[in-house]
């Protein structure tokens, strides 16, 4: 366990150095959030029908989405990408640790640090000035934190798979652009999932992507009550485990190729 913790903390400290970038990033996210809130306000002005989500809830959803953006928008881990490009990935094989574990921890660190650094100030700003409400209840808040942690595990597992696909140069390039776009739309980051047409809801509920954003957000605002939260969180964890297994299998295959071809 020790080496993994070392990687985690090294990554964490590295990210802490980019405070200025985090600050600028937060400003950008708030600006975007404002645009999106205004667009939704205009849409809600245009129709008096009852929608699966009220404007208040959509506003919460948008701000949570902005704060947790890095859980859903990610390309491959830049360090792993560089290692693969330069061929230094061979060095990783000489280390006496499990490669997948290493990469997974790296991806996890790349999510925890910025989420903490960016999300906290953004949520405060959005809460104080731009209409984000507090969690529906303390129980909802607690369930939200649990679900956010599960989202991090899921997001890291997903990110690790995307990074691993880069070991196949050509198809990896495509996958590493295509998959984040898919997750971006299907996690609810562009439009809250409940606003999708009825017929799509069943599919969206089964797919893993909602676990990255939609699930924790709806738990936060009580759209999914704390009593009903267990199943959605389990959904996140099961998918995270599935992606870990898939990532392991993929990496083992890729490594066999690298070794056979001599890197």
């Amino acid at each position: 366990m020790r080496p993994y913790i070392a990687v985690l903390s090294a990554n964490f400290r590295m990210m802490l150095q980019y405070r200025a970038a985090a600050f600028a990033g937060a400003v950008t996210q708030v600006f975007w959030g404002l645009i999106r809130v205004m667009v939704f306000e205009a849409f809600y002005r245009s129709s008096s029908l009852v929608h699966p989500m009220g404007l208040d809830e959509v506003v919460d959803y948008v701000w949570l989405g902005q704060a947790m953006l890095l859980l859903t928008t990610f390309g491959p881990d830049p360090h792993i990408r560089e290692m693969i490009r330069s061929g230094n990935v061979a060095y990783e094989l000489t280390r006496p640790t499990d490669l997948y574990g290493f990469w997974y921890v790296r991806c996890l660190a790349a999510r925890i640090a910025p989420v903490i650094l960016r999300a906290v100030p953004q949520l405060l700003i959005a809460g104080l000035f731009f209409g984000l409400r507090a969690p529906a209840s303390p129980a909802s808040g607690a369930a939200w934190i649990a679900s956010t942690l599960a989202a991090m595990l899921l997001s890291a597992a997903f990110g690790a798979v995307i990074s691993i696909t880069l070991l196949w140069t050509i198809s990896g390039e495509g996958a590493s652009r295509f998959l984040p776009a898919v997750s971006w739309l299907l996690s609810g980051n562009i439009i809250p999932l409940p606003l999708f047409p009825e017929w799509a809801q069943g599919v969206l509920n089964v797919l893993p992507f909602r676990g990255l954003a939609d699930t924790p957000f709806r738990i936060y605002m009580g759209h999914i009550g704390p009593g009903e939260a267990l199943l959605p969180i389990l959904h996140q964890v099961v998918w995270a485990a599935a992606f870990v297994l898939f990532g392991r299998w993929l990496l083992a295959r890729a490594m066999r190729r690298v070794v056979v071809q001599g890197g």
């Binding site: 849409f43 809600y44 245009s46 495509g174 776009a181 971006w184 739309l185 562009i190 999708f196 047409p197």
Partner: peptide, 24 residues
């Protein structure tokens, strides 16, 4: 990939119009 990403973007817009009918 770029085409798909931007395609999703417009699909999302269409989804919103489907639900709300118009934007003001």
């Amino acid at each position: 990939g770029h085409l798909v990403v931007t395609g999703f973007d417009f699909a999302a817009l269409a989804v919103l119009f489907r639900r709300f009918g118009s934007l003001v």
